[in-house]
Nucleic acid binder design. Structure first.
Length: 257
DNA sequence: ATGCCTCAGCTCCTGAGA
């Protein structure tokens, strides 16, 4: 079973690239973030035509998430139960026995800001809920745009960016706390090349100079961890014209055993 | 040098992203 996550930064703009990518990478599940469109504008027909079911949770201008799946998803939940939120950031479903959570974590803008405070509250709520989900669904995948780096290996300039957004101790505390629930970073289960990133700033030729961060993650539960075969970042679509600023991350899990 | 791209929107600028 292959699962992938991709922040597309406007599905309206990126739809042709998503269709092309799925044709070349026929994964079983693709979680999308930053749709930036309302539910009525979601191109469900285009995905159905190429053999994908879709569940989506849109929002005007900002946010918006979706799950594209080869097999239908069941028990779908939108956002974090018990956490009142007017932003569309999380969509969850069960696909072939695996509980899949696709999430667009808050950006946080700047430490000390209201948006940073919201990010902390959201992270606390997410962790409480993921803990509950794990107790019911031992086979669980939590993937998406986390907007948090684990450590300096995930940052192109860790010295100058220390303590800035995505690189603060407060954010990393929450990321480690998710790991402490019994989740594993798929990417770090294997040897990885240095300077591996999933996002590059549009400005200042960030991609060409590989000035990026690894902020898109696929976490798998303890039960799934032994079955993970590979996890990769696909930089190919970042080389497209009008690319998203994020690259897809893909995990391959052997579910036959 | 995060005014340096890119996208959405009551669109020719502003807010937000990360």
């Amino acid at each position: 079973m292959k699962l992938a996550t991709w922040n597309v930064n406007s599905l309206g703009v990126r739809l042709p690239q998503v269709l092309d990518w799925l044709a070349a990478n026929p994964v079983d599940v693709l979680a999308l973030q930053e749709l930036k469109l309302t539910d009525d504008k979601f191109p469900a027909d285009a995905f159905e035509t190429i053999g994908y079911h879709a569940q989506w949770f849109g929002q005007k201008t900002y946010n918006g998430v979706a799950l594209l799946t080869r097999a239908p998803a069941s028990d779908v939940i939108k956002n974090i139960p018990g956490f009142d939120d007017d932003m569309s950031r999380v969509i969850t479903g069960t696909v072939e026995g695996v509980r899949v959570i696709g999430a667009y974590f808050p950006n946080g803008q700047e430490p000390g800001s209201d948006k940073f405070e919201y990010k902390m509250e959201w992270l606390t709520a997410l962790r409480r809920w993921v803990k509950e989900e794990l107790s019911v669904h031992p086979k669980l995948v939590l993937m998406g745009d986390y907007n948090i780096t684990f450590d300096e290996d995930d940052v192109w300039d860790p010295v100058n960016l220390e303590g800035t957004i995505h690189c603060t101790e407060e954010e990393r505390y929450h990321l480690r706390a998710l790991i402490a629930l019994g989740l594993h970073d798929s990417y770090r289960l294997f040897a990885y090349p240095p300077k591996s990133y999933s996002w590059w700033d549009y400005r200042d030729a960030g991609f060409r100079r590989n000035r990026g961060m690894r902020i898109d993650h696929i976490l798998v539960s303890e039960t799934l961890r032994p079955s993970v075969i590979a996890c990769t970042i696909d930089k190919t679509p970042r080389k497209n014209e009008r690319p998203s600023d994020h690259a897809p991350v893909i995990v391959d899990i052997s579910l036959s055993a």
